[in-house]
């Protein structure tokens, strides 16, 4: 009897410890909705997240081992490609769009500016195969990884199998990307009653709610839809956005509504990075809207903001900066993994 009780007690401790670890790896912030990613099909674990992080930072994913995911998604710029309107990849080739920032991906269903990718797991395949990005293919990536000293061990620790597969590679990269949660900005602390807005931020927040929130919906600051926000078409790129995927005329010139979290650091802005500064973005919404058949209904009438109001609105947008995200060391280059390979 005593033995049974001890066994049961051990079982309970193990179970609760397991739950604790599981919960600690991904916590839904109190002011956030439930994520859309199905964690049951790819349960998070520390070794898998570490493997994904190593893959994210490893240029082995590219044809000539020069370009990693981090090349166009650097942490200090909220995991986008700062300072470049159009992101550049292998052999200095220039792509057709500005890389999106990687924030709160567990709440997103479609990926890329045009939503061409239907699941976070499949996202990495696109840059790996794109000739202007990594110009590799997943079959070759898997064989290159298999031939290294470190990866078979990391895969074994993660999946109990040192034979590397495409499935495991993609799932591991997803695991790391899922951990990129930004929910500790000043805005969040105000929402949790742990802080207060200044008067200027408060006014900016009101203006935001009146003019921007229908598309940049709180708390993710995107409604995850596709919209035509009145940008004049770039005649050299001729990018029709979502239309390229669906071939439906009403999707012409629509692009994914990006999150505004960490917008202070994710410049330049828009799908083609045409605006370097936030002030240019606000001026576009007040003065630059180009009318077309698919223009968002929210922008049919121009947004009116005085220059003082624009300053207040920007003050609010800066409250979306999350330093604990931008400088989180568990998102950084995993030098401990790569140090192992040089031993």
């Amino acid at each position: 009897m005593k033995k049974k009780i001890v066994t049961l007690a051990i079982f309970c401790v193990v179970l609760s410890a397991y739950r604790f670890v599981k919960e600690a790896l991904f916590v839904v912030p109190v002011n956030f909705p439930e994520p859309v990613y199905d964690f049951s099909k790819n349960p998070l674990s520390p070794p898998k997240i570490l493997l994904g992080r190593a893959l994210f930072y490893d240029p082995i994913l590219s044809r000539n081992n020069t370009i990693s995911c981090a090349s166009c998604h650097a942490q200090f710029s909220a995991f986008t490609h700062s300072d470049h309107a159009l992101s550049h990849g292998i052999d200095d080739k220039i792509g057709i769009r500005n890389s999106p920032s990687l924030i709160n991906l567990a709440w997103q269903r479609l990926f890329m500016r045009d939503g061409a990718i239907n699941h976070l797991d499949m996202q990495a395949l696109a840059p790996i195969h794109n000739i202007a990005e990594m110009d590799e293919n997943i079959i070759h990536v898997v064989s290159k990884l298999q031939a290294t000293k470190i990866y078979p061990k990391l895969y074994y620790n993660s999946f109990g199998d040192s034979i590397i597969t495409g499935e495991h590679t993609l799932k591991a990269i997803s695991q790391f990307m899922l951990t990129l949660v930004s929910s500790n900005s000043k805005y969040d602390s105000v929402m949790r009653d742990q802080s207060v807005f200044t008067d200027q931020e408060k006014n900016g927040y009101l203006l935001f709610q009146q003019n921007c929130a229908s598309c940049h919906t709180e708390p993710l600051f995107t409604n995850n839809n596709f919209s035509n926000n009145g940008l004049a078409i770039d005649t050299s790129l001729r990018d029709l956005g979502r239309f390229g995927v669906t071939k439906i005329a009403s999707d012409s010139l629509k692009f994914k509504v990006p999150t505004l979290r960490n917008i202070e650091f994710s410049y330049p802005y828009m799908h083609d990075g045409r605006f370097k500064r936030l002030s240019q973005v606000l001026n576009h919404y007040t003065l630059g809207i180009k009318k077309s058949n698919t223009l968002a209904k929210e922008l049919q009438n121009p947004i009116k903001l005085t220059s003082n109001e624009k300053v207040d609105l920007m003050a609010f947008l800066f409250t979306l900066t999350d330093k604990s995200f931008l400088y989180n060391t568990s998102f950084a280059y995993p030098k401990e993994v790569f140090a192992e390979s040089t031993k």
């Binding site: 199905d38 499949m122 997943i138």
Partner: peptide, 24 residues
Amino acid sequence: TNVSGAMGNDLDPTKGMYWTWQSG
């Protein structure tokens, strides 16, 4: 199945039967 993420065995994308630029 097309929108269910990464899968293994015959559905592994290394089988060369997956569009990478537009999922499916």
